[in-house]
C-alpha cells in the first residue's frame, strides 16, 4: 500500500513535468522565472484551501461552503479596514480568522453534533453565508481605493524576495504535514474516514473529529479569504465563487479518495499545482479562458476514474495475494 501511495505522487510529478515541457516548448516565456513565480502566487490559495478541503474529504464528508466562507471573511476584513483604516493589521487578520473559524464551527455543529450529511449542511450554509455578505455590504463592492496600503500588502509584502502569500502557503503546508502525520488527532481523522465503525470501537469520538475538521477548514478558508480579497483588491458578493470545485479537483487529482480515509498532503499540493499550471498555460498558449472550466471538469473526471481503477486493481492484487 505504501509503495502504491508513493507511486501516486511520482506519477503526478511526472505528469506535471510533462505538461511543463509541452507548454514551454510551445511558448518559451512560460518557463521564465517571473511566470513561474506568478503560477506559485496564483496557486498558493488553492493549495491552502485545497488542504482544508482534504481534511474534510478524509473523514468521508465534503465542504462545499469553503468559497463562501472565503467571501464572507474577506468581506468582514475589508469592511473593517474600510470603516476604521487606523485599525492595526494583525487585528484585521484576527477578525478574518475568527469569522472563518466561527463559520466553520457552525458547519461543524450541523455535521458533527446534529448529524446532518455534510453535503446538505454545507449547501445550506453556502446560501446563508453568501446572503450574509449581501446583508453586510448592501450589495456594494469594496474596491482598491477603499483599502489601506497595509491591508493590500498582507499577501504582497516581500520577505527574502518572495511574496508573503507563498510564505503563508509554506507555513500552512508544513503545519498540515505535521498535524496529519505526527499527531494523534491527525491519525484519528484517517482512521475515521477509513472505517467509521471500527474507529468508533477503538474509542475515536467521531462527533468531535467532525466538528474539528469543519472548524479547521473554516479557519483556513477564512485566512485564504482575507488573502484573496487583499490580493485582488476587491471584496464583492461573488468573491471566490466556484473555488470550492477547484479545491475538490485539487484533492481528487492529488489522489485523495472521495470516499474518505486515504490521501496525502503532498498529493493535494501537487494536485493544486497541476491545476495551476493548466490554468496558467491556457493564457500563455492563447487559448480562451472560457475553456478553463471544461478542462478542469475533464481533468476531475479523468482523475476520479483513474483513482478508482487503480484502487480496484490494488484491491484485487491484495486479494490475490491473500488467496495465494
Amino acid at each position: 500500500m505504501k509503495d502504491f501511495l508513493k507511486k501516486r505522487e511520482v506519477t503526478l510529478v511526472g505528469l506535471i513535468a510533462l505538461l511543463f515541457l509541452a507548454v514551454s516548448l510551445r511558448s518559451p516565456a512560460f518557463a521564465s522565472l517571473g511566470n513561474l513565480t506568478d503560477i506559485l502566487n496564483d496557486t498558493a490559495l488553492l493549495i491552502m484551501v485545497g488542504l482544508a478541503q482534504y481534511l474534510v474529504i478524509l473523514t468521508g464528508g465534503i465542504d462545499l461552503s469553503v468559497a463562501s466562507i472565503m467571501g464572507l471573511s474577506g468581506m468582514c476584513a475589508a469592511l473593517v479596514n474600510k470603516l476604521d483604516p487606523t485599525m492595526p493589521i494583525p487585528l484585521v487578520v484576527l477578525i478574518a480568522l475568527g469569522a472563518g473559524l466561527a463559520m466553520g464551527a457552525f458547519n461543524g455543529t450541523l455535521v458533527g453534533l446534529a448529524g446532518i450529511s455534510s453535503i446538505i449542511a454545507t449547501l445550506g450554509t453556502i446560501s446563508i453565508y453568501r446572503g450574509a455578505i449581501f446583508l453586510m455590504s448592501g450589495g456594494e463592492w469594496i474596491s482598491a481605493h477603499e483599502m489601506t496600503e497595509g491591508f493590500r500588502m498582507i499577501p504582497d509584502a516581500k520577505f527574502l524576495g518572495v511574496s508573503a502569500i507563498i510564505w503563508y502557503m509554506v507555513l500552512v503546508v508544513l503545519l498540515f504535514a505535521w498535524f496529519m502525520n505526527l499527531t494523534r488527532t491527525g491519525r484519528e481523522i484517517y482512521a475515521l474516514g477509513g472505517n467509521k465503525t471500527a474507529a468508533k470501537y477503538v474509542g475515536i469520538k467521531d462527533k468531535k473529529v467532525n466538528f474539528l475538521v469543519f472548524s479547521l477548514s473554516g479557519l483556513v478558508s477564512g485566512f485564504a479569504g482575507l488573502l484573496y480579497v487583499a490580493r485582488y483588491a476587491a471584496a464583492q458578493n461573488d468573491t471566490a465563487s466556484g473555488f470550492e470545485l477547484a479545491t475538490v479537483a485539487a484533492c481528487v487529482i492529488g489522489g485523495v479518495s472521495i470516499a474518505g480515509g486515504s490521501g496525502t498532503v503532498m498529493g493535494v499540493v501537487l494536485g493544486a499545482i497541476f491545476l495551476g499550471i493548466i490554468n496558467n498555460a491556457l493564457t500563455v498558449i492563447n487559448l480562451s479562458p472560457f475553456f478553463q472550466m471544461a478542462i478542469q471538469g475533464f481533468v476531475i473526471l479523468a482523475a476520479i476514474v483513474a483513482n478508482t481503477i487503480m484502487a480496484q486493481r490494488s484491491e484485487r492484487l491484495a486479494l490475490a495475494r491473500r488467496v495465494l
Partner: peptide, 19 residues
C-alpha cells in the same frame, strides 16, 4: 466504474457547464 455519484456529478457539473 463504481464511483460515488457525488464525485462523478461534481466532475460533469464542471465539464458540462465548461463546454
Amino acid at each position: 466504474f463504481k464511483i460515488p455519484s457525488i464525485a462523478v456529478t461534481l466532475g460533469t457539473m464542471s465539464l458540462f457547464r465548461g463546454i
